[in-house]
Design a protein around this nucleic acid. Sequence first.
RNA 1: GGUCCCGUGGUGUAGCGGUUAUCACGUCUGCCUGUCACGCAGAAGAUCGCGAGUUCGAUUCUCGUCGGGACCG
Length: 406
Amino acid sequence: MAHYKNNNQFYFEVKNKIPGKLGRTGIIHTPHGDIETPAFIAVGTRGEVRFVSMNELKEIQAQAMLSNGYHLRNECENIKKHGGLAVWSSWNGPTITDSGGFQVMSLGSGLGKVVSMEREQEVINTDPKDRLARVTEDGVYFYDPILKKDDFIGPEESMRIQCNIGADIHMAFDELTSLADSYEYNVEALKRTERWAKRSLEEHQKHCDDLGYHQALYGVLQGGRWEDLRRSTAKHLSKMDFDGYGLGGAFLKEDLGEILRWCCEELPENKPRHLLGLSRPDDILIGAEMGADTFDCVAPTREARHGRIYTKYGNIRLAKYKESLEVLDDHCDCPTCKSKITRKELCRLYKSHNPEEKRKYYKLASIHNLRFILKLTEEIRDAINNNCFEEYKNNFLKDYYHTDKK
RNA sequence: GGUCCCGUGGUGUAGCGGUUAUCACGUCUGCCUGUCACGCAGAAGAUCGCGAGUUCGAUUCUCGUCGGGACCG
C-alpha cells in the first residue's frame, strides 16, 4: 500500500488500483476529516446544500462539501471570524472551495449558455459586447448581475477569499475555455492559467495556515481537447508544489476519458485529482477509471428540483408518474425511498403551490438524487477494492442506459 | 320594482370598430454537468355568455336575453 505524506494534516493515501489503469481508491486526509475516494463532493455553493440539512447530508454518507469562493467572496471575512467554512456552515467535515474561475466563462464567453457536451457545432461563444466578464492578465473584470456592480477577481483575490473561507482544499484561479474557443485561444488562455497558477501558489502560501490548520491548494489543468496542451500543462503543474490537481474544462462526451488519461498519465500518482463539475454516472465511471478521485456537480440537486429523478434504470421525469404508487427507486437506500413515499405523492408535492410542500419536495428529491450519486461512488470504490471495476461499470451502464454497449 | 356594474383559453386578467385577441398562473414536451436560477426553451388551449341590430366589418357600439354582483326602494 502506497502511503504518501505532504504534511501531517493533508495527505493522500492510495489504496488499490485498477489493474493496468489509472483509476484507484484512496483516502484524502484533511484537517476536518478523511475522504474515501472515489468520492462525490456535495455542492453547497453558499455553504449549504439547498433544502438539505447537514444531518441529512451525513445520513446519506456525504463525505465533503464544495462551496464557491465567488459566491462567498463578500462574506469571507465573517466566515474566517467564525473559524472557517467547516464551523461557520456547521458542516464540520472536509470542505473544498472553487476559485470562482468558472464564473469567468459563465459570465463571459458562455453567458446564458449551457456547457454542452454533445453538440459541438451548435456551441457559439456569447458576443463579446454581451458578456459580463472580461479576462485580462491581471484577472477577470466582471459585472455582478445580482449586486448590479462591477467587480474584479484575480489569482491573489481568489486566494485571499479562499483562505478566509478556510476550506480544507482550494482551487487555483483558472480560466475555463468554452468548446467554441480555438486552439490558438486555448494556447493563450492556458499560458495565462499557468501564470495564474504560479501567482495562486505564491499568494496561497502567505495565508494557508492563518486559521490554524493547513489548507491545501490544487492546481487546475485546462487545455481544452488538445493532447499537447493537456500533457504539457500536466507536466508543468506537476513540477509546482500543489497538494493536488483539479481537472477542468468543457468536454465533449466522447473526449472525456481520453483527455483525463492524458492528464493523469502525466500527473504524480501520490496527489489527489478532482474532476470539476461533472456527475453524470457515465462521466463519473470514466473519470474514476481514468484516475479522478473526487467529483462535484450541481446537477443532482438542480435536476431534482426540476423534477428529474435518478434511478438504477435511468432517469425519470417525475411528472410522468403522477399516479404511480412505486417509490422513486426500489434499489435506493436513501431516506426518501426508505420512507416508502410514492412517486404519486412526491409528484403532488412537486406540483403543489403550497411553499411548504414545495420545500418538502425539494428536500426529498435532492436527498434522493444526491444519495444516488454518492452510492454510485461507494460502489465504484468497493468494485475497485474488490478488483471488479470493469464488471461493475458494464453492469451499471447496461441498467442505467438500457444498452449493451461496452 | 328601480338604478348601476360585470360576463374574454382550465383559473385570474388586458384590450380595441379591422389584432396572428394580451399577460400571468396552470397543463403538456424537452432541457439542465466547477448553481444568479422553485430555472430555461418550446407547444397546446378562446367560435371574446347567448340572440338580434347598427356597420363594408362587431369581442369592442345599441337593444333584448340569461347568469353573477352592488346599491336604492
